[in-house]
Write a protein that binds this DNA or RNA. Structure first.
Lengths: 193, 193
DNA sequence: CTTTTTGTTGATTGACGAGTCAATAAACTT
DNA sequence: AAGTTTATTGACTCGTCAATCAACAAAAAG
């Protein structure tokens, strides 16, 4: 049955299964067997393609970040004006695709991973840097020298809203989160003016 | 050698050791043996006093929350006026005792725990509720009907600042965090006025 | 002084899980 | 057709760890 060119297909299936399982179990205590089973293959094959469980986690992290980055870029391209760009970033951050239970759970656990695995820390730092520079770029025309400071608190607020989503029961509501972030932004901008 | 009345002493030592080990390892993948060793006893004794590892985690969580709560109450008692009360809450939240690497790491991991262990979720909800009502009480005279909304975003911001501390290298700087939170607050209040 | 309660641990059990290996098979190369 | 590369898995190794147990020691109770 060996069809050739399976590698990318298998890897993608494993990455998605990893995210789903982390979200389902709620921690990084997922077994390779669980992941492999959900992806429809044996655990041996999972080890064959990724050398270790840690590599699977990192690949899953890159995947989530890639999705997030793409969504932000897309929203940014379709936006106009500084304020429009900020709204775009916020909407992308809390879009149904990113702001869903399993993705939020995955993020939380990647944060834990970052405490011990340097590569995970690096990836998370990249995410933070990109968010920060996107926000600063959009804020510069509106807030001048205060752009950095506002971007930092806005970034922390976004992360905090993600964190709090973990405790909520019921489906995530991105609109509410966007509203909270926008109110904060308005307040900051109003003060500067 | 069995001196009587060891139970509370042993339990306290275990709770502290649990927090230290979680902070050191950076995850909940700490063994009971590690914890027991740091607390100066055998793993069997740890199991004797707490029935399970999970109970140890929950006890550690209660301990951290108790410390935090006590510090907030103390700061609140020594404060004057609505604005003073808010400052007190923020200062307590980012005090050296609470805002230190191992405590921050422990918080993060408790959040993970809350995804699967109902009791952990309950405890975290209590913390959030207390923080919220403390903030609302202090904000009411300043912001009236907007107190709840501001308290919510301020609470999320605090959590976000904790979260981001995890990625930073170097010693935590509570003063900076308090500054960020206070700026946010000022902005919100200025708008309402 | 014997019985019970409290403190304490080394040794053991039992389960589970990451990673390896050998074997099998289909496809591609020469 | 023979040889190589890619796909795939069941079985196995080896280690780890939570939880239990049996046993011992000292204090308190009767």
């Amino acid at each position: 049955m060996p069809k050739l060119g399976m590698e990318p297909i298998r890897k993608e299936a494993l990455v998605k299964a990893t995210i789903v399982e982390i979200g389902r179990v709620g921690s990084l205590d997922v077994t390779v067997s669980q992941i492999a089973k959900r992806a429809g293959m044996s655990s041996a094959l999972a080890h064959h393609y990724f050398g270790s469980k840690e590599e699977m986690f990192l690949a899953a992290m890159r995947h989530i970040m890639t999705l997030y980055g793409a969504e932000v870029r897309g929203a940014l391209a379709a936006s106009e004006g500084p304020e429009g760009r900020i709204r775009a970033i916020l909407r992308a951050s809390f879009s149904p695709g990113n702001f869903r239970r399993e993705a939020v759970g995955a993020w939380l656990n990647f944060w834990v991973l970052a405490q011990t695995v340097p590569e995970a820390k690096r990836l998370l730092a990249i995410y933070q840097g990109r968010l920060q520079s996107n926000l600063v770029a959009a804020l510069r025309p509106l807030a001048g020298a205060r752009a950095e400071a506002i971007a930092e608190s806005l970034g922390a607020l976004i992360d905090g809203l993600y964190l709090r989503e973990v405790l909520k029961s019921g489906a995530p509501d991105g609109a509410v989160a966007v509203g909270v972030a926008l109110r904060h932004l308005d307040a900051e901008l109003a003060r500067g003016a």
